[in-house]
Design a protein around this nucleic acid. Structure first.
Length: 495
RNA sequence: GGUCACGUGGCCGAGUGGCUAGGCAGUGGUCUGCAAAACCAUCUACAGCGGUUCGAAUCCGCUCGUGACCUCCA
């Protein structure tokens, strides 16, 4: 029996606005598409939140026994316009005196570095928009052939009204076309469009535009939303299982994606839409344009808060909130999470070498422990409820720590349950939640030196020379080595 | 202005008709030479006002407050 049968997954589907049982089109295969970053500048911690969310989803789906093809794109063509009408990649290229593709490469590398730091698994396929120009031209043509787009001035625009009449537009974001019309703003290039709601499939490149490709409509570049439609179709098919992305992409990006796919294939592209909510700062969305984004450097190396935090503490902090809620980032909140994570790590470490002592098991505790282990998967299967799953881990950590410190007998759990705990507890943390045990840079040299120090200190303690013993402890602490006297002798920890 | 969310104890954050997560901080205790850690106990909340119900933090209505989207954004 596969794990996905034991712990059937439910997902909150943004499209239906309901929690639904997850059934892949072709079990056990799952197609997952996630909108990646636009690589014109450094990703910040807000961006990373949604990538971490879908990393956990990817990991959990795999853990459930699904064979997942995870496609996450890189947007490497400057299709977006600043207020001053300038393409962001091009602007960045000009500012940094780089080729546009150099900008793209630089920030792609950066993104990959950050992903690695936060322990994200690489996706199965990471396609780029510029490598799929031909396919994008083809899809634009197909939509034109269906009569749902028109050419204007060398650009191709999607005809939202024509599409709406035939298929209906706005289901994902819950918008109505007439409401949108009355609310739309005057934007640049609007006169080329029949309606302000229409969006570009292909844009005619002005002479200053460096990123340009030939097309049936003249030289230009693909529009906003087309790459995701094209690449998801190419690698996952016309209809696939899950599409994820940040909440802020729901409209217009995802809505347009749906429209393009439906217009060109006649099929709804996505069965389950998932949207990760925003990371906020003092209650306001973190975004580069608002100037309140926290960079990765500021968190990891310090600068934003009074001290630095590790990647794993931040990852843990983010997972302590449900992906569908906003989370507010603050120093005290990360600090609280960090301390909790530390406790979990203590249990994790203790478990590695834990051996059952002989004696009678506490069958009540044993049964409760088994139940808690199952409970973790039940919670994760409930729309990826990581905070609840983590809460269960804390309950398990209590038992582990109690055994470790001999507060309850070392025989409390049966051999079977202890082995299961030893196997699954780290697996949940590491393989599913993607957390790493903070590595202690121990070396044999240091071990030897510390052993000597500990022996000398313990001798001092035996001699009741507490002044010396405390001096050793205090000075080691200043040097970054914390001593803890336990029932099984003294342990040390490197900070 | 339109659309949609949200408002939970000192703080962060789950839950979503009855069984009152969890973390951090605090308080009391066990352990310890002391400390740290750990464990045990404790503090027991759902913006306000109405309504539905045997029963509401959870459903409905109104009020207040906050935010997101409607323009690039994860």
């Amino acid at each position: 029996m596969e794990n996905f049968e034991r712990f059937p997954l439910t997902i909150y589907n943004s499209l239906s606005r309901k929690k639904e049982a997850f059934t892949p089109i072709n079990t056990p295969f799952v197609g997952l598409y996630v909108c990646g970053p636009t690589v014109y500048s450094e990703v910040h911690i807000g961006n990373m939140r949604s990538f971490i969310t879908f990393d956990v989803l990817f990991r959990y789906l795999s853990h459930l026994g699904y064979k997942v093809r995870y496609v996450r794109n890189l947007t490497d063509v400057g299709h977006m316009l600043d207020d001053d009408g300038e393409d962001r990649v091009l602007k960045r290229a000009r500012l940094e005196k780089l080729e546009p593709m150099e900008v793209v490469q630089k920030y792609s590398n950066y993104f990959h570095d950050v992903c690695k730091q936060f322990n994200l698994l690489p996706p199965s396929i990471e396609p780029t928009a510029t490598a799929h120009i031909i396919e994008q031209i083809q899809m634009a043509q197909k939509i034109l052939d269906q009569g749902m787009a028109y050419v204007s001035n060398g650009s191709v625009y999607f005809d939202v009204e024509a599409f709406d009449k035939k298929h209906g537009y706005g289901a994902l974001s819950g918008r109505k076309i007439d409401e949108l019309q009355s609310n739309s703003r005057k934007l640049d290039g609007q006169d080329e469009k029949r309606s302000p709601l229409d969006f570009a499939l292909w844009k005619n490149a002005g002479p200053e535009h460096i990123m340009r490709w030939p097309s049936p409509w003249g030289e230009g570049f693909p529009g906003w939303h087309l790459e995701c439609s094209v690449m998801s179709t190419k690698y996952l098919g016309e209809t696939f299982d899950i599409h994820g992305g940040g909440m802020d992409l729901k409209f217009p990006h995802h809505e347009c994606e749906v429209a393009q796919n439906v217009a060109s294939s006649g099929e709804a592209p996505v069965r389950y839409w998932m949207h990760a909510n925003m990371l906020t700062m003092n209650g306001t969305k973190m975004s580069k344009s608002l100037g309140n984004a926290i960079s990765i450097e500021e968190l990891i190396n310090g600068g934003k808060f009074s001290r630095a935090f590790s990647e794993m503490s931040i990852r843990f902090f983010l997972l302590q909130a449900h992906y569908s809620s906003t989370v507010d980032i603050s120093e005290s909140a990360i600090e609280a999470a960090e301390k909790g994570f530390e406790r979990l790590q203590q249990a994790w470490k203790a478990l590695i070498n834990m051996e059952r002592s002989s004696g009678e098991a506490n069958m009540e505790l044993d049964a409760a422990t088994k139940k808690l282990l199952d409970q973790v998967y039940v919670e994760l299967s409930n729309d990826l409820n990581t905070p609840k799953a983590i809460a269960v881990l804390f309950d398990l950590a209590n038992t582990v720590n109690s055994i470790k410190n001999q507060q309850i007998p070392g025989s409390s759990l049966t051999e079977e349950t202890l082995s299961r705990l030893k196997l699954e507890f780290p697996k949940i943390l590491e393989d599913i939640l993607g957390l790493k045990l903070s590595s202690e840079a121990k070396s044999d040299h240091l071990d030897g030196v510390l052993e000597l120090m500990l022996r000398m200190r313990n001798q001092a303690r035996a001699d009741r020379n507490f002044a010396l013993a405390d001096q050793i402890r205090d000075q080691l602490k200043d040097a970054g080595v914390e001593l803890k006297d336990g029932k099984n002798g003294t342990e040390y920890e490197l900070n």
